[in-house]
Amino acid sequence: MAMAVFRREGRRLLPSIAARPIAAIRSPLASEQEEGPLGVRSISTQVVRNRMKSVKNIQKITKAMKMVAASKLRAVQGRAENSRGLWQPFTALLGDNPSIDVKKSVVVTLSSDKGLCGGINSTVVKVSRALYKLNAGPEKEVKFVIVGEKAKAIMFRDSKNDIALSVTELNKNPLNYAQVSVLADDILKNVEFDALRIVYNKFHSVVAFLPTVATVLSPEVIEKESEIGGKLGELDSYEIEGGETKGEILQNLAEFQFSCVMFNAVLENACSEMGARMSAMDSSSRNAGEMLDRLTLTYNRTRQASITTELIEIISGASALEAAK
């Protein structure tokens, strides 16, 4: 209260009382404000204190976000590791052929809905663009299916004409197979493809994620490849039970493979997202801490300086009176 009165007074009487304790403070922050217009006072400790308060609040938020990410990570990590068993048999049977050359490719880009999770979304987008460049060409078309808000926002800028589908709000409930399989079903029904390339971040550890491409071929392509006898040549040595033809079996297999691979990819990506968010929030709380330290130092120095100035004023005033006697 007293400060406010002081300040108002100061605006009127500024030239006459220049040697106010607060105005006398010299700090790095003050120096650039000294040449301000008349009536604007130089730095007060108030500004620094406000700044400190806001930095402290930001630090609290980032710490809380880190905690949330850590607990979510623990929940999703086990599921992601368990789900790896779903696609491994498929890879053993049908192989993973990222280099296959087909007419219609569909790149399924998995990303997160929320930000503040480091670079995982930009890496998947980079990989998807590279896949686009590799596979696009005359008589070959590449379409994107985008899962997650973030990749959509980035892809929209330069390749919006190649987006076929976009999916969001996948993470509202805990991820489960039913959900992902419905999604896989929708993707299968809405795009035409010879090869689906699923781009996601494979979770290695809390700080390591590998951008990964999983390839799912359409039944026709598998059949063609196995007849040519390339990597899929061994497929004919398997015995098929029941009365279905090979084409039917392959179609069922390819569909089920896609939904399983999607399930694993979605989980791995969610896991990477949480890990990335955790480390991002960890470093931002650390940065906030460092900033707070610096600000505290400035604040204390300023305060000390003002106390010293006041003391000097009192002492010199007293000694002047003493001398006048």
């Binding site: 919006k160 076929a164 589908l165 976009s166 996948l170 409930n173 489960n176 039913a178 929708d186």
Partner: peptide, 14 residues
Amino acid sequence: REKVHFSLSKWADG
């Protein structure tokens, strides 16, 4: 456990 929720949009002409 098995709840389904997501929103899907098709794209046409960018």
